[in-house]
Amino acid sequence: MARLEHKQSALVMGTALSLAALAVAIDYTRHPLPAPTAPTARHVPAGETTVPCGMGNPCGLGETPCGLEGGSPCDLTPCGLGGDEAPCGLGTEPGNTETPCGLDAEPGSEAPCGLGTEPSSEAPCGLG
């Protein structure tokens, strides 16, 4: 039996968190994110006021966060990673069965959300 005093506990926690931070840094160097693609020209229909997500305007604070603005082009071009994949729960139109997360899921489908059967799913919804 051992009794860890406050300072020893703090030392153990500090070491563990430092190692975790180091692991995250190493992980980032092994799997760097692709550089953001340059903005491309896009036709904006007359009257459309929403600034496109990922078109020179990253969705975010003060702009148009994904998931907050259903009418925004975020639905079509998800913020952040990949950009070519419709995230689960972001932009799934009613009846769209490519992303069986949530209420748009195919009734009776046994495939868990994001479990290898929906190549378009971007989010770990339903995976806990």
Binding site: G89, G91, G102, D104, P112, G126
Partner: peptide, 10 residues
């Protein structure tokens, strides 16, 4: 309108 999210279905 404008708010959209999905369930945690299992």
């Amino acid at each position: 309108p404008g708010l959209r999210a999905t369930s945690a279905m299992g």
